[in-house]
Structures are given as structure tokens and as C-alpha cells.
């Protein structure tokens, strides 16, 4: 009987601790800051509409930012930031977790790297289907660029021929 009551007390205590911890985690979501310095922005492929900030948001399998994602029910906030002072290593992304530790990831120059940063820095697993869909979107955006560039080249070439 005594053993039972001790066990139930410890169970209640454990429950209380876990609830408090979960509350703390929810209050301190993982914050991902994306460097918006000129060099970092230029280093990220322009085919991804909205740049690295939008790509990271797209890679999260939930709605918008600040909504619970990931295995530990953490939340992730993705935001643009000033220079992270590691310009030679750009594009840079800084992840700060619940324990306030900061990790800066460099060379985040593609969708694979962005997904890896989310997995390591925020414990968010991006499904392959999501990555494939983002690649399709990037290709669709690239069509626009190709069309404009082709148009300019053809116009200039024909103009030169006519003038000569």
C-alpha cells in the first residue's frame, strides 16, 4: 500500500515536471535567424522564390511560423536578421534553441542544406515530398527568368542584324 502511494506520488511529480518542461519549451521556441546581408542573399540561388527565409518556412510541415512542429512539439520561428558576421561563409543561418545556445550554420546554399539545418538546429524533419514540391516551384520560377533572358537576347541579336 505504502509502495503504491509512493509510486503514485512520484508519478504525479514526474507529470508536473514534464508539464513544466513542455511549458518552458513552448515559451522558448527555436528561433532561426536568416542573414539578410547582400552577400548572403546573393549566394542563395535566385530560383527559389522568396529566398532562404521563404524556403525554410516552406520546408516546415505545418502552417506558417510559430505553430507546433517536430517530434518534441517545439515551435519554430523563422525570421530575417542583420549580418551574422560570417560573411565569407554565407548564406548564414543562426539557430537558437530552448537552452539559449546559438549555432551558426554556413553555406546554406540549397534546399538540401536548408533541410539539414532545420533537422539539426530545430529538430524538424522535412518530408521528401515537400522538398520535391519546392524544387518544382523553383523550376517554375526559373521558367520566367529563362523567358525574359531569351527575349532580351533575341531582341538584341535581331536589332544588331537589322542595323548591320
Amino acid at each position: 500500500m505504502v509502495f503504491r502511494s509512493k509510486r503514485s506520488t512520484s508519478f504525479v511529480l514526474l507529470s508536473l515536471i514534464s508539464t513544466t518542461c513542455c511549458g518552458a519549451l513552448a515559451l522558448n521556441p527555436t528561433k532561426i535567424q536568416v542573414c539578410q546581408n547582400k552577400g548572403c542573399v546573393k549566394s542563395f540561388p535566385s530560383k527559389y522564390d522568396g529566398g532562404l527565409v521563404q524556403t525554410l518556412k516552406d520546408l516546415i510541415p505545418s502552417t506558417g511560423t510559430g505553430i507546433p512542429v517536430g517530434e518534441n512539439d517545439n515551435s519554430v520561428i523563422i525570421e530575417a536578421s542583420d549580418c551574422l558576421s560570417q560573411c565569407s561563409n554565407g548564406p548564414n543561418v543562426c539557430c537558437s534553441g530552448a537552452a539559449n545556445e546559438e549555432r551558426v550554420f554556413g553555406k546554406v546554399d540549397g534546399i538540401q542544406m536548408a533541410a539539414a539545418v532545420l533537422e539539426v538546429g530545430a529538430d524538424v524533419d522535412s518530408p521528401g515530398v515537400l522538398m520535391a514540391a519546392i524544387e518544382d516551384m523553383a523550376m517554375a520560377c526559373q521558367c520566367k527568368l529563362t523567358c525574359t533572358i531569351s527575349y532580351i537576347i533575341v531582341t538584341m541579336y535581331t536589332y544588331c542584324i537589322l542595323n548591320c
Binding site: D49, G50, D58, P61, S62, T63, G64, P127, I134, M137
Partner: peptide, 9 residues
Amino acid sequence: LVQTTAMAH
């Protein structure tokens, strides 16, 4: 994955 930012995008 209908309720994702990627879908909205």
C-alpha cells in the same frame, strides 16, 4: 500536406 506554407506558396 495541404495545411503547409509550401502549399500556400
